[in-house]
Design a protein around this nucleic acid. Structure first.
Lengths: 206, 206, 206, 206
DNA sequence: TGCTAAGCGAGACGGTACGTCTTGTCTTCCG
DNA sequence: CGGAAGACAAGACGTACCGTCTCGCTTAGCA
């Protein structure tokens, strides 16, 4: 059987890499607002048409450029308890969001998602929902384990977790840190001790 | 006593109103991304310079145009309990956010705040932090009343409340509704009764 | 031998022609002062940048648009005598300057040359000095033939000829005509004969 | 007899002077093209309306500002011969035109006269024709004295004299000087003596 | 002394055009 | 055919001035 390759000159992997790299570099150097397709093409040593041929917008270029990293930081290993799993997830999240360059990229993509509905849909499907799926593994496991009761439902947990993360990134300048994770865990997975001692357990070993 | 008016022709209130109205109309008609200063000026029957003279960007025009409404929906009346106050606050929030036009405006302003750092600062100070202040009235009252213990601290409560609201607006298409408010209240102000009765006092289990 | 063409899309001759034609039309319709780059672009069905890419100013567009004609009317054929050559040259000049549209173009270009020094230099080199060169052919021939003596020197003759032409165009509304040419020839090349040759008699042939 | 003063506050002479002075200063500093009514008003510490109330254009302001000097340099004293009178007139002209600031002013006004027909008319009447009148005194005297014959007629003489002066100012960078005056006198008032004595009476061969 | 009138500095107004920038398409040649 | 180059039409950007207007304030002559 012969090759199934389509006819014509194949897509240049070198150009693709050059475009993604140039986009990331320029995003850091001039910011998302200052990023232009022409600038990326010039930096990558590539014709503008080569970018337009393969990506619908500069946001999609960045989405692809940053995607590898996004997938890296989603730990869903079973650490034995809902609290432990959640802590690991939150810690991973704030480590990632702690890199200013990555946080800026996320802010720009979320912004673009508001302004360009079609990109918004792609961003949702290829990034936001993947993150929710990862958290769902943890909440599902907790549910099966009995650590998590019917209310709040897992979707609400996800809204709270991701909502809080995104809000800190988009609306404040306060970093995400350990204390924040403790507080959130206290709210989402209060420990069994009597009411009146909330927040207490975070001194406990984990 | 002599007049303290500054010399020169006074600012035209009619032009100001026409600009704000035109901006809101066009934002609805063509969307924030399609909104231009030129378009606003044309619709308002006003010179471009009259807009540039008073507002730094189209986002600032919309921020001022929408500001009246933003201040309207911040109920902080004392309803007797933290849960009741919080419920009123959340309900007011989702009623406001339930107007698609207003939600779209918020999405656009938050997006612009990411892309234009200077506008971001103005948006934070004149909108986001005012909203936090309103909630702080409630949490402070609850703290004094004893309804709210040390953890989570009020700032975390605000992060969770506003984070969840904004996340639903920015990242999902699910509406904010009563059920969402119940869930959030269950998490932030769990009632003393045994688990299994979340959503508590208004007695409308779903 | 390989092509020396530069890469990329070649300049559009159609756009160039459309721009030159639109510029001339509009110059006639609205006058030079009312001529704008935006107007030319709109009339030519062309982007503004296409004009800015190739011409430094609207005056340069007109200079190029009118250049063909400028070169046409420079007769330097040898008619046998200085007087005859000069008469032919002056007649050609006043025929050209007699077209109001062309005279208006010259007035505008000379005006612009005063206001924009860089254009002034281009105008001098590409128009004014070419005209002087044409007259120099005639004076040089007269000098060799012995019709023209040392004084006035050819540069002064040129100053007088062109000065008078330009002054009539710029500073008066009186047309250039045959009588004017006669007078000027009488001054520059007084003939030796008496009768109706005022200024002539005292001029011993030189 | 009653006063003929009109009612209301009289025109401020101080403002008038400040405007004329500011216009001249700025014309020198930024050039005619860079001169604006707003700039003049700001420099003079005057409202824009005060300028628009009294002058139709910035060119008219400059015309008035420079007018005093223009009238100064028109010598028409009788020096005994056409040649002597003419030489004095030409010398006065090139002395004036030799001041770069004044020459630049003339260039700008002549340019503006081409672009703005109404100013052109005012410039002609209040400046150009006054100069012609001054020369006419000299040619008329020469005619009466018998120094000047029927041809060329005085109007042609004026065209040649002023044409040459303006052409040197507008179209060349060569200064007007003694040699130029000699040449022009040689052409307009050739002396009776044999060739070899060009430039005549002042006996300064070069 | 108060009234009427016009000029004053100031500066906002509705506009026009500027020259630049970016977009997304197109047209060429090369590999 | 894909890619690099770069010209193209379109049109928004923010700026600079235009010439007009609207203020409150002089500064006069007239009543």
């Amino acid at each position: 059987m012969t090759s199934t390759r389509s006819p014509g000159r194949p897509r240049s992997e070198a150009s693709r890499q050059a475009i993604l790299a140039a986009a990331m570099e320029l995003a850091v150097e001039v910011g998302y607002a200052g990023l232009t397709i022409e600038g990326i093409a010039a930096r990558a040593g590539v014709g503008k048409q080569t970018i337009y041929r393969w990506w619908p917008s500069k946001a999609d270029v960045l989405l692809e450029a940053g995607a590898v990293k996004a997938d890296m930081y989603v730990p869903v290993d079973d650490l034995g308890s809902y609290r432990a799993d959640l802590r690991a997830f939150l810690r991973a999240s704030y480590v990632v969001a702690g890199h200013p360059q990555f946080a800026d990229l996320l802010r720009a993509l979320m912004a673009e998602a508001q302004l360009d509905a079609e990109f918004g849909e792609r961003f949702r499907v290829s990034f936001l929902e993947r993150r929710r799926d990862a958290l769902a593994v943890i909440t599902q496991r907790a549910r099966e384990r009995g650590d998590l009761t019917a209310r709040p439902d897992p979707a609400t947990v996800a809204d709270i977790v991701f909502g809080t993360i995104w809000y800190r990134i988009l609306a404040t300048t306060r970093p995400l840190d350990e204390a924040w994770a403790d507080d959130l865990i206290g709210v989402l997975a209060p420990d069994a001790e009597p009411a009146g001692a909330p927040g207490g357990e975070h001194g406990a070993p984990r």
